[in-house]
Design a protein around this nucleic acid. Sequence first.
DNA 1: CCATCTTTGTGCACGCGTTCACAAAGACAT
DNA 2: ATGTCTTTGTGAACGCGTGCACAAAGATGG
Lengths: 281, 281
Amino acid sequence: MATGRTHRPATRSRGIPEATVARLPLYLRALTALSERSVPTVSSEELAAAAGVNSAKLRKDFSYLGSYGTRGVGYDVEYLVYQISRELGLTQDWPVVIVGIGNLGAALANYGGFASRGFRVAALIDADPAMTGKPVAGLPVRHTDDLESIIRDNGVSIGVIATPAGAAQQVCDRLVAAGVTSILNFAPTVLSVPDGVDVRKVDLSIELQILAFHEQRKAGEEPGRPAAPAGPVAAAARPAAAPAAPTAPTTSATGSAAAVTAATAGGRKGPEGDVPAVMPA
Amino acid sequence: MATGRTHRPATRSRGIPEATVARLPLYLRALTALSERSVPTVSSEELAAAAGVNSAKLRKDFSYLGSYGTRGVGYDVEYLVYQISRELGLTQDWPVVIVGIGNLGAALANYGGFASRGFRVAALIDADPAMTGKPVAGLPVRHTDDLESIIRDNGVSIGVIATPAGAAQQVCDRLVAAGVTSILNFAPTVLSVPDGVDVRKVDLSIELQILAFHEQRKAGEEPGRPAAPAGPVAAAARPAAAPAAPTAPTTSATGSAAAVTAATAGGRKGPEGDVPAVMPA
DNA sequence: CCATCTTTGTGCACGCGTTCACAAAGACAT
DNA sequence: ATGTCTTTGTGAACGCGTGCACAAAGATGG
């Protein structure tokens, strides 16, 4: 999976644990598949296998929603689909805007899984004037100048940011100021938002780095040390040069501290330069 | 953030907790930014703020790597960048293949954040013969028939799946059989892999559904019940019809159970039909 | 109506992760 | 050299999430 939740100290919303909420879409997908096959009921064991989780965990998850199962039989598929959909708020229509129509933004706009889950792309927004009016996925790209009015006219409360890192915080601020209270961030930056606004982050590069960590570990555990079976091409110390042990800083500690503080506290601008293309770094 | 890790019962690899590993890339990004600004040292407090985490957590995370800080001063930026890079295996060159060159696959191929982190796109692979040879992001698309030889010739151990859901498991099986041991899955399916293979999943739809849940909760807590301030357009019960209370299943429980078992146990084929476009559902 | 069998719902214990709070360590000034 | 001040590194407590294991519930068959 991608990264994870942003702050929210496990604020168990209405008694339903965050971990459970994160699994509900998984169950919903499996149930939808069963529903399409006209399967009337499932046991926790079967559904858990389909969703890739433990059956006890699944039952406990469902227990937070209420008792929708029948002992000795299992769960009614249709009924459970409806209950989970309702719990997730998927029985409503959620207008969504996508900001930043590069490669990724276009891919998201073309994504068919939106409408089927109650999400409707209300508008595509990009800062490049050359993009304005150009149709992407059947929608004309709107210019950033219209961001506020688009949000207000459509009652948008969920925004997707697919801009370069450097623009993300600024876009985020404008979205929030216009009334957006949930943000899905694909830009490789830590967004700062006021209380009451939810941010979730998807970061491809982080996922790959986590995989690399485990991959390296696997290779290291192999009997043969130098070359792993299907391991990476051994590239002698790519980074400039391995710095020696920490040396005493040349500038004063307080001096560097001030610089850092200025960069982060005032840091509405992404610390990392703009990423060349589109995807999360 | 996107979704999360797949199985792996918190197998603390070499003493470093999974949760810590997942945060290391975050620290690395913040440190890289500081390095580019030629900041020599950072305190845990400052770095934690830049990475959006608790300072105590950051210090504990670093303590798993060893004692790289200097009390009274902080951490040497360059040295820490090197240590984290090494720990994550980023000082090696990781050849990666992307399978499924639709909108999303193309976006990933064009992503500039790969090379800067030690990842190199070895090949782009697609099943559509019409795509074969067509250049995407400077690389000619290869046909699926060559998958095995590409993996072996380049020593690829990390694969990215950006195919429709229906093809994902099959592609996964071939990747694994050819020697891939880490997979980043963008298809909306639960992949089954043998032990020793890591799978991480990125699922856009799940992220949006989690946001919708919290958004609904916020709207529900507002004084005015029916229409939320910037809430969703109230669409009267979109789903077909709210099923009544669970009715006794018409077919026998054992009958339906068998059907489900067949669908999931044998289920190398995605339970959900192919998604129209490209992105995770 | 009773016995048996299946499957849910949950009490309980365990382990991981987070956070607090502080002692130890070192830099820096005098 | 000594004292002060900053910041790390970590012991310990707490809370959440997971998984076990079982009692309760209900279906099913005789």
